[in-house]
Simulated assay, not measured.
Amino acid sequence: MRHDTNERATAPSGRRPEPLCGAFPTWGDLLAMLGIFLGANLLVGGTAGLVRLALLGAEAPDAAQAGRMLFVTYLLSMGLALGGVLLYRRLRGGRGCVARLSRRGLDPALLGWALLLVVALEVVLDPLTSRLPGPPYEAMGRGAWTFAALVVLAPLLEELLCRGAVLEALRSRRGDRAAWIGSSLFFGIMHLYPAQALGAFAIGLVLGYVCLVSGSLWGAVVLHAANNALAYWLMTAGYAETSCAEAVGHRGLYVVLYAAALGAAVAAVRGLRRAGRRLRAAADKNREAA
C-alpha cells in the first residue's frame, strides 16, 4: 500500500503502459483470484453455519444475533479472501502498489457528482434489478453490528480488493480501460446474486473511474460507504425488496422520477468528466512544479 500525493491521475484511456511484473495478471489470474474469494466465503460461511446450528439448533437468530454473525463472518471471509489474493499476487510475481492513497480522492466536486450518479443509477436500473433474484435481506440482521459490517467493513475491504489489488494489477499490465472494466466485472460477480451483481457492476464503473482520475482509493471508499448506508436505511425501512415503482405508488409520479434520474445521470457523467479534467490539470501542474 502506498501513500502518494503526487501520483499522476489518469482517466480510463485504454493506454497500455509497460508491464511492471511479467505476465501477471492474465485473465486466468483474475479467475483464480475470484476463486480465492468464493472459496474463502464458502469456507467461512459453511463453518459459521455449523457453529450457528450447534449454538441455536433449528431456532432462527434474532435481528441482533444475525447482525453479530454477519459482522464476524464477513470480517473473517473478506480478511481471508484479501489475504489469499495478496499472497497469490505475490507468488505470481505481482509488484507495485496495492492501493493508492491520495487526498485527491476526497475532492468534493468529484465525490458529489459521483454520488449523484450512483443514486441515479439505482433508480435507472431498478426496473431490471427489481425483477432479478436478490440476497436474503432478513438474514443480515439489524442494528449496530449490521451497520458496521455493511457501512464500515465492506467499503474498506471490498475497495482494497477490487479497486486496490485487482484494479492496480490490471492497470500495470493492460492499461486503464481494462483495469476499469475488469475490476468492475470482478466487483459485480463477487456479489453473486443477479440483482446485486448488476447494480454492483454499474456502481463499480463509477468507483473505478473515481479511483483512476483521482489516483486514490479514498473516494471509492467514501462513495461505497454512502451507497451502503442508503441501502441499509432502505432495508431497515422495509423497502429492500420493493421496487421504485411500488414505493412511489403512482405511475405518473414514477415516470417523472425515472426521467429525473436519467437527466441526473447524464448531468453527473458530465460533471465527473469536468472534475476529472480539473484533477488531471492540477496533477500535471504539481508535477511540473516538482
Rank of each mutant, 00 (worst) to 15 (best):
L198T: 10
A109G: 08
E241K: 13
A245G: 11
R103T: 14
V151D: 10
A109H: 11
G204W: 03
D62W: 03
Y209V: 14
A289P: 00
G182A: 09
M140R: 07
R273W: 10
G39E: 09
L91E: 10
R177A: 15
S183H: 00
W180S: 03
L70V: 05
D29P: 05
R274H: 05
L192Q: 12
L253I: 04
V256W: 03
A148Q: 09
A58D: 14
G39A: 11
T5H: 10
A267S: 08
V222F: 10
L76K: 06
L75H: 06
G39R: 07
L212N: 07
L121V: 12
G276A: 15
V221W: 04
A178Y: 02
A120R: 12
Y254N: 02
L160A: 13
R177V: 08
F147E: 03
A139Y: 00
G208C: 09
L157A: 14
Y209F: 15
A32E: 03
V85R: 02
P108T: 08
D176T: 15
P17E: 06
A109S: 11
I36K: 06
P19M: 10
V123R: 09
M140S: 09
G35P: 09
H3I: 04
I36C: 10
A60N: 08
G219C: 04
T26G: 13
L110T: 03
V248S: 02
A11P: 12
A290L: 09
L87S: 12
G252C: 04
G188L: 08
L217P: 04
E159G: 01
C244L: 14
R174Y: 13
E59L: 14
A220E: 03
T236L: 09
G263S: 05
L212V: 07
R270P: 01
L132C: 07
L223S: 06
M140A: 11
R103P: 13
A148T: 15
G84Q: 05
T129A: 06
G14K: 10
L185H: 01
V123A: 05
V72P: 01
M69F: 02
E159C: 03
